[in-house]
Amino acid sequence: MDERTKVQYVFLDMEKVVLNMNFLTGLKVLVGGLAGYQLLSLMKKGTRSVLRPPGASDEDSFLAQCIRCDKCVQACPHDVIKVGDASHGVGIGTPYIVPREGACQLCEDFPCVEVCPTEALSGIKKVSDVKMGVAVLDRENCIALKGNRCEVCYRACPLIDQAITINYKLREGDNIHTIFEPIINKEYCVGCGICEERCVVSEPVAIRIKPREIEGLF
């Protein structure tokens, strides 16, 4: 058998494929595909405010790169990584963290990043490489700002005295007590969420993590 026969053979297969494609089925697939595309683009907007595990790049490329294999979930020794369900839109099957229910403990060796087969979680060598988000203090509900000695977020912070520092200021109308005001330093805060997990105020929690890079949609 010569080379030509071989090539013929290959083409024969291809031919079969094309011939076997019913036009109508093809149309259906096409329409379905387009509809799916529309749906996906819409759903994509739905994942913006979810906190991703360490090493996630911006949301779009994260969604592109995450193979939804759940290895990070299995690798997390603290069982805090959850898997997105249908309500996460296209984020379905992707890992995320709800700090209030279990914050990232910033393991020294980052097993979640270590096991990621794609680059969805990557680029983390040390804690300061992490940029999951940034903590935001709810100034209305924080009891430390009212003068109570709380600052649980500050003492729980794994980057104590860097990511959260205390601003000592005299309490208004009281010259013998100080307000220990937690200050979040964006350049150091990695967004692990331990502060949110530990905060003693509920409904609403007085310190929350704003997921990284929330950008305008419009």
Binding site: R149, Y168, K169, L170, D174, N175, I176, H177, T178
Partner: peptide
């Protein structure tokens, strides 16, 4: 002594 410390700090701050 959290609240006493708030007092100590107040003296320092002011």
């Amino acid at each position: 002594h959290p609240v006493l410390y708030s007092r100590l700090t107040a003296r320092k701050v002011s």
